[in-house]
Amino acid sequence: MVRLPLTPTEIERGQRLGALLRRARGDRSMLDIALAAGVSPETLRKIESGRVATPAFPTIAAIADILGLSLDEVWTEINPPAKPTPRRSRERLAS
């Protein structure tokens, strides 16, 4: 399987996710959180550092649960609101 390079948007999203998880973890040890979530400490470290920008959904769900984050909070934090795009005026079709 060939892994495609990450887009700049995916990289930024991974960095925002890592920052969110670090803030939510606070002073708790990475080891304790990782083990409680059922992931390796190395996996958590890579996610928090942004090195794994697109972790699997079950991994994020497990970590978020242990940190007391809802998936809605995670989604909102890592996906900033889309910039509005100018609307094109509709052209009338001549009959």
Rank of each mutant, 00 (worst) to 15 (best):
A64D: 03
K46F: 09
V2M: 10
A19P: 00
S89L: 14
G14C: 00
E77F: 05
A37M: 07
S29C: 09
R16I: 01
G18W: 01
I60C: 02
P80I: 05
A94S: 14
A36P: 00
M1D: 06
G14A: 03
L71Y: 08
L17N: 00
L6N: 08
S70V: 03
R13Y: 05
P8D: 06
L67Q: 03
R16F: 00
R45H: 13
E42D: 13
A24V: 07
E48M: 05
A56G: 15
M1G: 15
E42N: 14
D65K: 07
R28P: 08
P41A: 07
F57R: 11
G14L: 00
P80D: 12
R3A: 12
I78V: 14
W75Y: 14
L20F: 04
R88N: 10
R28W: 11
I63K: 02
T59L: 09
P8Y: 01
A62C: 03
A24F: 04
E91A: 15
T85D: 14
E10H: 01
T76L: 13
L35I: 09
A37C: 02
A24W: 00
A24Y: 01
P86A: 11
R87W: 06
E73M: 09
R45W: 15
A94I: 15
P5Y: 01
V2P: 14
T59K: 06
R23C: 08
R87N: 13
R16W: 01
N79G: 14
M30V: 12
V39C: 04
L4Q: 05
R25T: 07
S49R: 13
P55D: 10
P81A: 04
R90N: 12
A24S: 13
E77T: 13
P86L: 06
K46S: 05
A64H: 05
R13L: 10
S70P: 03
T54F: 06
T9G: 02
